[in-house]
């Protein structure tokens, strides 16, 4: 953890030292380096994860490469390559504000407090928090977790909601999905709460998917957006244009089908409401 402290100090220094007016815009930086650097997840299928062939892939990564990258290339008039760095809920904001990455394309929920530190793109996915339990567990939703041991991800909105709504639950917060899931599998916790889609991804990748159940209504609204540095509206606009064009052209649906369709990594049908919501975000040309 000395590393963390060093990083903190480095960040603090970077924060103080970077003279605000001289800072280069994200687009200028991409033009200069020819690289769009994104922060994404390594263990959150199907948004960003390392597959069995040891490739770092996912829905969020595809959106960047097939929707946002073309928009950026068109704007800059030259090819750009996408570089991926790992980001977790705890590190993603510092990574972004310290200029280590230009865009967080993972599983980040757009919230009001977060908008005080970073800007968000359009919502590209909608889900809500649920619980993962062992099949046959008495836990059926947020009403049953008082007194129970519940795992959540450190830094996630879910942990925050549970703490506020069910103070009697014994919350255990883990830095990543695999250790939370391990704790559930071994009985250290009775349930693991996360966004429904992430739980679905986890079950789909589990050795015996039949042993697990995703229970409960969505107890939160989790619109995923891509995060960008604050006050860089040219870049944000470009990201949004990329996303809108993909939704309009059917590219988005094609990718959705690839990852969440019946033959995808994590089958998770697009509900008609969500489809309407996505298309209504596309503003006129």
């Amino acid at each position: 953890m000395k590393r963390l402290l060093t990083a903190a100090l480095a960040l603090a220094l970077a924060g103080w030292a970077a003279p605000a007016p001289a800072a280069e815009s994200t687009l200028a930086k991409i033009a200069r380096t020819g690289t769009l650097t994104i922060g994404t997840r390594r263990g959150s299928p199907p948004f960003g994860y390392v597959n069995q062939k040891n490739e770092w892939v996912g829905f969020s990564i595809d959106l960047v490469e097939q929707a946002i990258k073309p928009a950026v290339e068109r704007k800059l008039g030259k090819p750009v390559k996408v570089e991926k760095k790992e980001s977790t809920p705890a590190t993603r904001i510092p990574l972004l504000t310290s200029n280590a990455v230009d865009l967080i394309a993972g599983t980040m929920t757009d919230t009001r407090p977060r908008r005080e530190s970073v800007d968000f793109s359009l919502t590209f996915f909608v889900t809500g928090a649920q619980f993962l339990v062992k099949k046959g567990s008495p836990i059926r939703g947020i009403g049953d977790i008082a007194g129970k041991r519940v795992a959540a991800q450190q830094g996630s909105t879910n942990a925050r909601i549970i703490r506020a709504r069910v103070p009697g639950a014994q919350l255990r917060e883990f830095p990543d999905q695999p250790s939370a899931f391990q704790a559930l599998a071994q009985g250290q916790v009775d349930a693991y709460t996360n966004d429904g889609i992430q739980l679905a991804g986890l079950v789909a990748k589990a050795p015996r998917p039949g042993d697990w159940a995703i229970v409960g209504d969505f107890y939160s609204y989790e619109p995923y957006g891509m995060a960008l540095r604050k006050n860089d509206s040219d870049f944000r606009h470009l990201v949004n244009v990329g996303l809108m064009e993909a939704i309009e052209s059917g590219k988005y649906l094609q990718l959705y089908e690839k990852w969440f369709g019946p033959k995808g990594e994590v089958p998770y049908p697009l509900t008609p409401e969500n489809k309407r919501f996505l298309t209504m975000q596309v503003v006129p040309k």
């Binding site: 960040l11 603090a12 924060g15 705890a90 904001i93 504000t97 005080e116 530190s117 970073v118």
Partner: peptide, 10 residues
């Protein structure tokens, strides 16, 4: 997480 103020917290 609550404040999105990483540098202050660290």
């Amino acid at each position: 997480t609550y404040t999105a103020k990483a540098i202050e917290a660290l």
